[in-house]
Amino acid sequence: MSELINGKTLDHLYPVRCDELNCFIKYLSHKAIDGKSVELERELMKLTSNVISRLFMSKRCSEKDGESDDITKIVTEIAEIVGKFNLSDYIWFCKNLDLQGFEKKSKDIRRRFDALLETIITDHLVTRKQETRESRDLLDILLHISEDESMEIKLTRENIKVFILDILVAGTDTSAISIEWALAELINHPNIMKKAVEEIDKVIGKNRLIQESDISNLPYLQAIVKESLRLHPTVPRIQRISKQDGTVGGYHIPANTTALINVWSLDRDPTHWERPFEFMPERFKGTQLDVRGQHFHLLPFGSGRRTCPGISLGLLMVHVTLGAMIQCFEWKEGENGNLATVDMEEGIGITLPKANPLVCVPVARLDPIPLLA
């Protein structure tokens, strides 16, 4: 948190995020010109994967250069296997039996990812010796920390690999899913969409694209993101292990007990939320409620020492991407743009995706290409 994803580092790597957003808006603009539909979950996944991959390794996941393409495949495979039901986890006499082949597949994924990261790290080390320059990505920063003999805790190469894996897996689909849910809610609530667009036009105008620095001046957009994260937390439950015996709600909780916090239920608790099942961004108007773990009935990123370390990066991506999408385009639901509403059924998984991916036809409300200059 202090060295890797702090404000200074995020500012230094702002051009990467800006470049990927511009590429995404250009892609949507071409689709709008052709009148073709877009499966937004897939395209948003490409956007977030490219951003995180470039932040860490200066490589785009969507590039077909072998390495970058392998990164995308490995991250997808990890997300799939983590979300599957493992019989050996629940039936004690099966714990040493790989009945479903998950252990074999996990070892294969680890071997491939390890070999891939070894190549990338070696290339970075060679480049660092040949060039005298500031860190160009987060892997450079990690390698610099690992070489610092004054560090209290030595950062090993294995630590670096695991950290990169954690961020790639945790930071790609979560941001993409958050944007997809928010846009789906706006399509189903055209009056709220209209207010959001009016705010953006008033604050930013129609002569430039929304930027990250504009977010603080767009309180209604912030409220929309908060309300979407309340109704559709990308991680619907938080898992923790108790460090010592304790009592919660009259129940004795022994040490080393796995506890599951039902974030989805807290977000819909009528004790804390008026009309909890309705999408109402106005509920955040004039309040100090935020999503950073200080209010225990709104915990999309967790709380305390184990809160999501990428919260600042994630919120920047969600706000600016959603803002750009509604600033530049109107959205017509369905393959042909002929559906009246979006199906809001929830899918099953360790994250909370839509059961049916959002497919829309973008219609340009202003020409975005000149705004990207």
Rank of each mutant, 00 (worst) to 15 (best):
E3W: 06
L4F: 04
N6F: 07
N6H: 10
L10K: 03
L13C: 07
P15I: 09
E20D: 09
K26H: 13
A32I: 01
V38R: 00
E39A: 13
E43T: 14
S49D: 08
V51S: 00
M57L: 15
S58T: 03
D70I: 01
I71A: 00
T72I: 06
I81R: 09
N96Q: 12
K107L: 13
D108Y: 08
D108W: 10
I109N: 12
L117N: 07
V126Y: 08
E134W: 02
R136L: 14
I141C: 06
L143P: 04
S146G: 08
D148P: 00
D148F: 07
I153N: 10
E158L: 10
I164G: 01
L186D: 01
V197F: 01
E199F: 08
G205S: 10
L209Q: 12
E212R: 06
P219F: 09
A223Y: 13
I224K: 03
L229Y: 04
L229A: 02
R230K: 07
R230Y: 05
L231W: 05
L231Y: 04
P233M: 06
A255I: 05
L260Y: 14
N262H: 13
S265H: 06
D267R: 01
T271A: 12
H272K: 12
W273H: 04
E274F: 04
P281M: 09
Q288V: 08
V291C: 15
V291Q: 08
F296Q: 04
G314I: 05
L316K: 12
N338G: 01
A340N: 14
A340T: 14
D343T: 04
I350K: 02
P362A: 12
P368L: 07
I369S: 11
P370Y: 08
L372Y: 06
A373M: 10
